[in-house]
């Protein structure tokens, strides 16, 4: 029974991902992304990984896609035909690369994962609760790499701000006052 529900959520996630690129209306694309995020979240719940499931919903569906929608609405795209792309060389190369990716990723999973992997991962968290065991992994066993990753992300964030401030506008001195006005 639960295997069928899991399969349904997997199909939903894949369908949502396909809809993201098929919809011509960017708002519908963003909402399809939310569908995918939720299906992923449901899959995590079925695997017993409640914390990751909730973090998935909270961070991706609750914040990041909201920002996407915010930007889409600020740009207020009128001409949705401009987003349509004819099937050319670019699409062909994209399809080829996509097929290659699916092949490599699927092959690796096929080789590494066994069918009872999912039920095993659920049993790991049964004793002390998923949140606690995850926190122990992140903040005790792998503290240094975890903090290093957050520093790298912060560096990327600052990099974006620097790029926008100094390459976007020729006179960065006046930008402060024009914001206040």
């Amino acid at each position: 029974m639960s295997a069928w529900i899991m399969a349904a959520f997997m199909l939903t996630a894949a369908a949502g991902a396909v809809m993201v690129i098929l919809y011509r209306n960017p708002v519908y694309s963003a909402l399809s992304l939310v569908l995918t995020m939720f299906a992923l979240s449901a899959i995590y719940v079925m695997m017993g990984a409640y914390f990751i499931a909730v973090a998935q919903a909270l961070v991706y569906a609750g914040a990041i896609v909201v920002l996407f929608l915010f930007v889409i609405m600020l740009l207020n795209l009128r001409n949705q035909q401009a987003l349509k792309e004819s099937f050319g060389l670019r699409a062909a190369v994209g399809a080829l690369l996509g097929a290659l990716f699916i092949g490599v990723a699927g092959g690796t999973m096929w080789a590494v994962l066994s069918p009872d992997q999912f039920s095993k991962s659920a049993e790991v968290f049964k004793d002390e609760g998923h949140t606690e065991s995850l926190a122990r992994l992140l903040f005790k066993n792998n503290l240094v790499p975890f903090e290093a990753v957050s520093l790298i992300l912060l560096a990327a964030l600052i990099g974006v701000v620097v790029l926008i401030r100094f390459h976007g506008r020729p006179s960065s001195d006046n930008s402060e006052e024009s914001n206040d006005a």
């Binding site: 708002v27 909402l31 914390f51 909730v54 909270l58 569906a61 609750g62 909201v66 998923h130």
Partner: peptide, 25 residues
């Protein structure tokens, strides 16, 4: 009675904003 209680509340509440944005759009 779930392990992630309060986070579930935050996650669900943060979804309400979709209704507001989409109604506006």
């Amino acid at each position: 009675r779930i392990d992630v209680g309060v986070l579930y509340f935050l996650a669900i509440v943060s979804l309400g904003v979709y209704g507001v944005i989409l109604a506006g759009w």
